[in-house]
Simulated scan of single mutants.
Amino acid sequence: MANIPQVALNDGSSIPQLGFGVYKIPDAETVDAVLTALDAGYRHIDTAAFYENERGVGEAIRRSGLDRSEVYVTTKVWWTENGYDSALRSFDASLERLGFDSVDLFLIHWPAPKHDKYVETWRALERIREEGRARSIGVANFHIHHLQRLAQETSTVPAVNQVELHPWLPQTAIRQYDEAQGIVTEAWSPLARGRVLGDPILDALARKHGVSPAQVVIRWQLQLGNVVIPKSSTPARIRENLDVFGFELDADDCAAIASLETGERTGKDPDDLG
């Protein structure tokens, strides 16, 4: 089993730095995928109400034989359910589908600023944490100005900000802001949905270290200090994505990856959704 580092959060808890994402894995296939991940050594599973596979995640953890406390579970409220009461209902529904009494991390999935409900949603998350039903609370896809508004209008700093982050979009400004505020940056789409993997620079680095291009990118993410959640439904790739602790990128390697920045996204800009 890989010795996955733990990253300290601002609320006194910690999060495994490398996790397993289940976006776009059908619920019927999620049980097998998560069981494979847990068998490989992952102890952090990232799901969401929008993924429609929370039931599979919960079932896999129960079938795994692991104690619930051994697996870190994240889920999220979808932006159409932003709002105080609707976020509370969404959370209750997520717990019911997972079959759990609590989760380790609950996130606002998108700020959807045109709807202007993310501040009241955050207050619902504060209540959920106070009740002990989520050990930590955070946000996803928040720009700096969204985080600044939370800081001005509420009393709790998010533990995590999960954003699209990969070599094309390293999110330097957001990472710096998060670090200054004590927020951990977490990367979704860490491989740009696989689109960066044909790049010749990554191919050369993979040959240099005797690993795959995907392993190079995941290792780069870890060395930046990000929490990273690669996703695959292929057993060999699930295991490969975890096998990133036997090599280290040097300064020249990291500079080469930095040269790939284009600002290109694979998903929406957070200000445009909703």
Rank of each mutant, 00 (worst) to 15 (best):
residue 2 A to Y: 09
residue 2 A to I: 05
residue 4 I to S: 05
residue 5 P to H: 10
residue 8 A to P: 08
residue 9 L to C: 07
residue 12 G to F: 00
residue 12 G to L: 01
residue 13 S to V: 01
residue 14 S to N: 06
residue 16 P to F: 03
residue 16 P to N: 06
residue 17 Q to M: 14
residue 21 G to V: 04
residue 22 V to E: 01
residue 23 Y to E: 05
residue 24 K to R: 15
residue 25 I to R: 00
residue 27 D to Y: 00
residue 28 A to S: 12
residue 34 V to G: 03
residue 35 L to W: 01
residue 36 T to C: 08
residue 40 A to Y: 03
residue 46 D to E: 09
residue 48 A to G: 04
residue 50 F to L: 14
residue 54 E to P: 06
residue 56 G to F: 02
residue 56 G to P: 05
residue 58 G to T: 13
residue 61 I to M: 08
residue 63 R to H: 13
residue 63 R to F: 09
residue 63 R to S: 14
residue 64 S to R: 13
residue 68 R to W: 02
residue 69 S to V: 04
residue 73 V to Y: 05
residue 75 T to C: 13
residue 76 K to C: 03
residue 76 K to L: 02
residue 78 W to S: 15
residue 79 W to C: 15
residue 80 T to S: 15
residue 82 N to W: 08
residue 85 D to W: 12
residue 86 S to V: 13
residue 87 A to I: 07
residue 90 S to T: 11
residue 95 L to S: 09
residue 97 R to C: 08
residue 98 L to F: 05
residue 100 F to Y: 12
residue 103 V to E: 14
residue 103 V to H: 14
residue 108 I to N: 14
residue 110 W to S: 05
residue 113 P to Q: 07
residue 128 I to L: 09
residue 128 I to T: 05
residue 131 E to K: 02
residue 132 G to D: 03
residue 139 V to L: 09
residue 144 I to F: 03
residue 147 L to R: 10
residue 149 R to G: 09
residue 153 E to A: 13
residue 155 S to L: 03
residue 158 P to D: 14
residue 161 N to H: 13
residue 166 H to N: 11
residue 169 L to Q: 00
residue 170 P to V: 07
residue 173 A to G: 05
residue 175 R to W: 00
residue 178 D to R: 11
residue 179 E to F: 05
residue 180 A to T: 14
residue 180 A to M: 07
residue 181 Q to S: 09
residue 183 I to N: 12
residue 183 I to V: 15
residue 185 T to W: 01
residue 187 A to Q: 04
residue 189 S to E: 02
residue 190 P to C: 06
residue 194 G to M: 03
residue 200 P to L: 00
residue 203 D to N: 10
residue 203 D to L: 06
residue 205 L to N: 14
residue 205 L to V: 14
residue 209 H to K: 15
residue 213 P to Q: 11
residue 215 Q to A: 11
residue 217 V to H: 08
residue 221 Q to V: 08
residue 228 V to P: 05
residue 229 I to N: 07
residue 233 S to D: 06
residue 234 T to H: 10
residue 236 A to E: 14
residue 238 I to S: 00
residue 238 I to C: 00
residue 238 I to L: 00
residue 238 I to V: 02
residue 239 R to P: 01
residue 240 E to Y: 04
residue 242 L to Q: 04
residue 246 G to V: 04
residue 247 F to A: 09
residue 247 F to D: 08
residue 253 D to C: 09
residue 253 D to G: 10
residue 254 C to Q: 15
residue 255 A to Y: 10
residue 270 P to K: 07
residue 273 L to E: 12
